[in-house]
């Protein structure tokens, strides 16, 4: 299988009030083209930090990342146009309408106007938001915001999609809608990388799952193999087995 993301010895150390925090500690892995790649791990494991580095938002302290063959540090302007990101924070302008938020993204990705309008209408329908498109997102429910946030990231038809906890805090209906979107995008040949705290979600959706703990990648395999290796009935048990029972700060 052809790798689309190659991560080698990736490390990120934050300096926070004079203290060193190693958020990501020497991890190496590949993500294959066209797969759904899940990342799970307790709070503070380093998932979002890894995402930030993969998406060129912050620079690694050490190690290297190639996305679609481009170096994240030297060729970030080649990477940005081909990736779409749904950040963990919902990040919509509350004083702009749904459509205005979408248009802002479309324009910043240089999507031609006509194509952009077509895609906006198409995706609004796809996530059932067309009736609310001209309302301010400040008044949206969590589920509506998440659906809008997801389609904000695909207007430029990216090859690789990053979702950081796309289903946290959402009702079952919205979660299923998000899953359908994941399958749809994947069916179009896009590579999807997402993080989650819901084990059954990782189990159902992912081709492969990476388990992170305290900045390390402690396992990376197909969900079935992970369960098998740890002798667990479900992924949740396998997860606890790999990352321990203690609650993180």
């Amino acid at each position: 299988m052809e790798p689309i993301i190659e991560v080698r010895n990736l490390t990120k150390v934050f300096l926070s009030r004079g203290r060193k925090i190693t958020a990501v500690n020497d991890i190496s892995f590949d993500v294959f083209k066209g797969e759904i790649f899940g990342m799970i791990g307790p709070n503070g494991a380093g998932k979002s930090t890894t995402f930030s580095m993969l998406t060129t938002l912050i620079k690694p302290t050490n190690g290297s990342i190639k996305v679609a063959g481009f170096d994240v540090e030297k060729e970030d302007d080649r990477i940005r146009p081909i990736i779409g990101i749904v950040p963990q924070k919902l990040s919509l302008y509350p004083d702009l309408t749904g459509r205005e938020n979408l248009e802002l993204m479309g324009k910043l990705y240089d999507v031609p106007k006509k194509l952009m309008e077509e895609r906006i209408d198409y995706y609004l329908r796809l996530v059932d938001l067309e009736a609310h498109a001209d309302r301010f997102t400040g008044g949206f429910s969590g589920g509506m915001k998440q659906r809008l946030s997801v389609i904000c990231a695909v207007l430029h038809d990216p090859e690789i999609i990053f979702w950081d906890e796309p289903t946290t805090g959402l009702d079952p209906q919205t979660r299923q809608a998000i899953w359908r979107l994941a399958k749809k995008f994947n069916g179009e040949g896009k590579t999807l990388i997402f993080t989650t705290h819901y084990m059954e979600e990782a189990d159902n959706l992912c081709d492969r799952v990476a388990v992170m703990n305290l900045g390390k990648m402690v396992a990376l395999d197909e969900p079935a193999s992970l369960k098998e290796k740890s002798g667990s009935a479900n992924l949740e048990e396998a997860f606890i087995h790999l990352t321990g029972e203690e609650v993180r700060d």
């Binding site: 998406t55 302007d77 940005r80 990101i85 509350p94 904000c152």
Partner: peptide
């Protein structure tokens, strides 16, 4: 605070 600037800076905009 609300993360919107991050979203802007994730796009190709410098």
């Amino acid at each position: 605070e609300d993360g919107t600037i991050i979203r802007i800076l994730m796009t190709p905009v410098s």
